[in-house]
Design a protein around this nucleic acid. Structure first.
Lengths: 175, 175
DNA sequence: GACGATGTAAAATGATCGTTTTACACTCCA
DNA sequence: TGGAGTGTAAAACGATCATTTTACATCGTC
């Protein structure tokens, strides 16, 4: 695996497991088995490493939710949680840890959330045959967000509950 | 205001605004305008200070959701966000920052979430006249959790969307 | 066969971390 | 009146922080 890829995927794992601030660069160099000189040549700084981790995760997440139904959307989330673990949304966690004061990180978070909302809008619009208002998309977004959070302490079952709740809302909107 | 109260409320504000790990004890002593000697006499350690902040917040939050309808529950959340700001659930943020590895903190988080779920179960059971299954309570919990997260980037409007979604689900269950 | 790129190991940078210590001032109650 | 309790200011603790530097090894390529 190429050096920068290894660095970013190692960083993503450590940030997700232990938190962004709590993960020191020493631990990172050790886990990625590279010198700090190499790390800084590729990463630039810790802040830009976090931003790189987030934009990489954004792409991977986008691919994982390339679906065209609300049911499949929550199915994709369940699959994501199975392979990536459930420790809450890494974007919101990055936002919280930095207080939203780091522009590069805040931008990555808002970009990600905007694209998630857009994706859900498209899916909902298809499923309701254009009968939906924009509130319905927000409600599905909230169920998605809530399932991500609740899965931390209630497990994957929470995602299935959100899935059926979403289909009830969609059904209701179709009438 | 009594010293320990001032310490804990100052700590809660800084932790919420800047994150737990990123908030140093120096900044805390300065903000609470007390010496580090006094701070450590009352707090013991940073970890136990975080635990104290969380248990204090838990009590205050519990009081704020002393309601008996799902509609009022989301109304209470909207009010909470207005007065306390919306930076996501402080409990889940504490859990994420510590990786769940600090027993006192993890316990405070799970206790809080278990009590939230219980409260929702009671409300839902009343509103559905006992007709509800346990999945419905989980769905309302997910909407509550999702509204808390989504409000970070979509504002208080998200809470009202969750509110109407919850009432639709309740209505459906009553049939 | 010299060169630029890419890597390593390891020490040093100055700042900041959480925590403890030393030394001193005030108040309240016996 | 004197001692326990509660506070302050400020320095010191060793550890760790993100980052840079020095010195050296290994490449493929012209």
């Amino acid at each position: 695996m190429d050096t920068k890829t290894k660095l970013i995927s190692t960083a993503e794992h450590l940030f997700d497991r232990h938190g962004f601030t709590a993960t020191g660069m020493d631990r990172l160099t050790q886990a990625a088995s590279m010198s700090s000189r190499t790390l800084y040549k590729h990463a630039g700084s810790k802040t830009s490493l976090i931003a790189d981790v987030l934009s990489g995760r954004h792409l991977r997440f986008q691919q994982s939710i390339e679906v065209d139904s609300v049911d499949a959307l929550f199915g994709a989330l369940e699959k994501w949680v199975q392979t990536e673990g459930c420790r809450g949304c890494l974007f919101l966690r990055a936002y919280g840890e930095t207080g939203g004061d780091t522009p590069d990180i805040a931008k990555a978070v808002f970009t990600h959330k905007a694209s998630l909302y857009e994706k859900i809008q498209k899916i909902v619009s298809i499923e309701t045959h254009g009968k939906s208002n924009s509130e319905l998309a927000e409600q599905v977004l909230i169920l998605f967000e809530g399932a991500t959070s609740a899965a931390i302490y209630r497990g994957a079952e929470a995602i299935r509950s959100a899935q059926t709740a979403a289909s009830v809302l969609i059904q209701q909107a179709r009438l």
